[in-house]
Simulated assay, not measured.
Amino acid sequence: MSLDLEDTIKGLSSKQKNIEITGESLKSAESNIKDTENKLEMLKESINNAEKDLENANRQKLNTDKKKDSLQTYIDINSEKLAELESGRDLNSLPAGSEQEEDREFIESISGINNEDIKKAIEELNLRIKELGDINMNAAKEYKDALDRLDFLGKQKADLENSIETLRGVIKQLDNVSKEKFNSSLAGIRQKFKELFTFLFGGGHADILNVVSRNFDEAGENEEQSDADLSGMEINVQIPGKKFSGINILSQGERVLVAVSLLFSIFLVKKTPFCVIDEVDAPLDYANNARYNKLIEEISNYSQIILITHNKKTMEIGKNIFGVTSKHPGISGIVSVSMN
């Protein structure tokens, strides 16, 4: 379960890194899209303005051409009139002052028009169009491609976020199962620990407490506790004739018996076919060693125990004894004795 949890956490970390990379790509794509949109809008505005100016210039040129045609017609009419005058025709047949007034108004209306000014205005408009530079005809396609890329990255981001939520749910479920199994096992271990402690010390009281540490921020102002806080176990014991205290102030032999009580309480909750004990009884006195030997004999009824010891009293409870001797320097020999 621990390996599965580690693999899950590694997978979560990898997904988070992918999200960060995708987020950066998404931000870059969004920035490029905004820049492209701004450039496209400015280009459209410039083209619209140039088209309007060119349209106005063409309209003005068309009006000028019409007025030039009208003026040419006026010139032709007056040329005919002049020819008639020169030929001696009767001017009384003409309406008095009618044509002269019409001609005067027409001449005044076109008096402010100059072909050079019109040509100059057209040249200025063409120059402004050239100053706009080359027009990117693929701007619309690039804009569409950028939008498609943005949509793709958005879907990838959503997929990664969904995966993270799924992994978090799995991790939370594993944490809950681990906590339930831990608390269930701890309850059994506590009970066995109390029994073995009382047996080895001939009385007293002992307990195992589940301790949850709390994390502080750097400023030390806020105190926060979460599922990620560290936790552990604290052992409190009261040896007969002494005050209730922790194991730090106990003697070496007393610490050994407390450790033996804890280890064998775990062993009794979850039994194994073999148990190897390496010189645990070294610091024990005669009385404590006798209690220790009784515990070993009790456990040996349902588990095979291998003891490494120099204590003769401990050797007496063994069914098979193997001794290592050195008859010659650098050469070891093994001697076995069956006590059955």
Rank of each mutant, 00 (worst) to 15 (best):
G232C: 05
N215E: 11
E221G: 02
F216Y: 08
R255Y: 02
L230H: 01
N236V: 15
N248C: 02
N215P: 06
V258S: 00
N222C: 12
I235L: 03
L230I: 08
E221K: 02
V256T: 14
V256N: 01
L250K: 03
Q225D: 06
G241C: 08
Q225Y: 09
S231A: 10
E224Y: 06
Q225F: 09
L257D: 05
E234V: 04
A228D: 13
G246C: 09
N222S: 15
G241R: 06
V256I: 13
D227Y: 07
S245D: 08
S231Q: 12
L250V: 00
G253K: 03
L250W: 04
S245V: 11
D227F: 10
E218S: 07
Q225G: 13
E234C: 04
S245Q: 12
S245C: 08
N236L: 11
L257T: 11
N236W: 01
L257Y: 14
G246F: 00
D227C: 04
D229K: 00
D217T: 04
S251T: 10
V237P: 08
P240A: 12
V237Q: 02
N215S: 12
A228T: 11
D229C: 03
A219S: 15
E224I: 15
D229T: 08
L230A: 02
N248P: 03
E254R: 06
R214W: 13
E218M: 01
G253E: 01
E221D: 13
G241N: 08
K242P: 01
N222V: 15
E224K: 07
S226I: 14
G232I: 06
V256C: 12
A228E: 07
P240D: 03
R255I: 13
S226V: 15
Q252T: 13
L257K: 11
I239Q: 04
F216L: 07
I239R: 04
G220Q: 04
V237G: 01
